[in-house]
Simulated scan of single mutants.
Amino acid sequence: MLIPQSKQISLPLINLIRLNSFPILNQLHLEEKLLRTTSGNWCIVNDGAIPPTIVMGVSGKLPELVNLDLALRDNIPVVRRFSGGGTVIVDDGTIFVTLICNKNAVPGLQPYPQPIMSWTGQMYGDVFHGSGDFRLRENDYAFGARKFGGNAQSITKNRWVHHTSFLWDYDAKNMEYLKLPAKAPEYRSSRGHMEFLCRMKEYVLSRSIFMERLMSSLGSHFSVEFVEEETVAGRSDTPYHCSSKLLTRQELEEACLSQHENLG
């Protein structure tokens, strides 16, 4: 049972980093650095990412998730991130919010996937209150039956990461780079991308209003302190293994060739 924050003597500190059009691979590297080399709580908000990039979970299989012929033809970067979860394509219409927290940062919250997902669903429920039929559906954020926010998590011994890509807007053509996953949430009901997804801008008046609501909700759980990204980059010399990586063209071509051989 979560202990109401109003009964806490003081709120835990969280460091907030605001980014704009920050490349998603750089963001993932920053997240992993903060997760593995610091002991504080962090929130990273990145408004848009360039260039358009396909991002896969740590155990995702390329041929099953990515239309490799199209991705290779159009030189779309493919990144494998350090966390689990599904495959997305992100661009300047995507808003990213990442929480990196110690396991005791939220009183009463057990550091396991479903409790974390439930708690973040409550936090974002405050953000989207009055902006449509917001729901936590399985591991997605949705308005009604249509998804607008995808989530992934990574949990270590003492810390956890929950990161979300919100579809403020998206280019329908970009969805052609993604295959329909074999393993999908039940509520998707075999719908294609266009029938399954919606745009957050259809429910929230502006990106700035979303940011204001996010800061308000975050401030009800944490004492928020703004930190510049530049000051974080060189903060720690602690060695760590950075596992998020850009897949090489050779890796994509080999996966594509293997796929065609199997089909043949």
Rank of each mutant, 00 (worst) to 15 (best):
L136R: 12
T156D: 09
N158W: 08
V90H: 04
Q110V: 15
A145E: 12
V90P: 02
A145L: 07
V88K: 06
M123T: 11
L109R: 03
L99K: 00
E138K: 13
A152P: 10
I116N: 01
V161Y: 03
V97H: 02
A142G: 07
V90R: 04
I89Q: 07
V97T: 02
Y112A: 14
K147D: 14
W160K: 09
I116M: 11
R146F: 05
A145F: 01
H162M: 00
F148L: 02
F148V: 06
N102E: 10
H163W: 08
F128G: 09
T164V: 07
D140N: 13
I100N: 03
Q153S: 06
P113I: 08
I89R: 06
V88A: 11
L136M: 14
K103L: 09
I155D: 09
Q122P: 05
G149Y: 02
W119F: 09
N158I: 08
D133I: 07
R159F: 06
N102T: 13
Y141V: 09
A152R: 02
L136Y: 01
A152V: 03
F134N: 00
D92G: 04
Q114C: 04
H129R: 13
F134H: 15
G108C: 08
N151Y: 12
K157T: 02
R137E: 15
D133T: 03
G144C: 13
N104D: 13
S118Y: 12
T164C: 07
T120N: 09
F96G: 12
G132R: 04
Q114A: 14
G121I: 02
T94N: 06
F128T: 01
P111M: 07
W160F: 15
Y124L: 15
Q110R: 11
I95Q: 05
I116E: 11
S118E: 15
M117A: 08
P115C: 09
G108W: 06
P115E: 00
Q122H: 14
F96A: 00
I89S: 01
G144Q: 11
M117C: 13
V88M: 04
L99N: 01
M123R: 05
N102A: 04
F134I: 12
H162C: 13
Q153Y: 07
V161R: 04
P115N: 01
W160M: 13
A145K: 05
V88G: 03
G121F: 10
Y141T: 10
P113C: 04
V127Y: 03
G108D: 10
A145C: 05
A142R: 03
A152W: 03
L109F: 07
I155S: 02
T94A: 06
Q110W: 02
N104T: 10
I100S: 00
P107D: 01
N139G: 04
P111F: 05
F148Q: 08
K147C: 11
Y141S: 10
H129N: 14
V97M: 06
G121M: 14
A105V: 00
L99R: 00
G144L: 15
W160V: 06
Q153G: 09
V127T: 13
K157H: 07
R159N: 11
H162R: 11
T98S: 15
W160C: 09
M123F: 02
M117F: 08
Q122E: 15
K147V: 15
G150E: 03
L136V: 15
H162T: 02
N102D: 10
C101A: 10
Q114Y: 08
I89P: 07
V90E: 01
T156I: 12
S131M: 15
D91M: 13
G93D: 12
I116T: 11
L99S: 07
N104M: 09
P115V: 05
T120A: 10
K157P: 01
I116C: 06
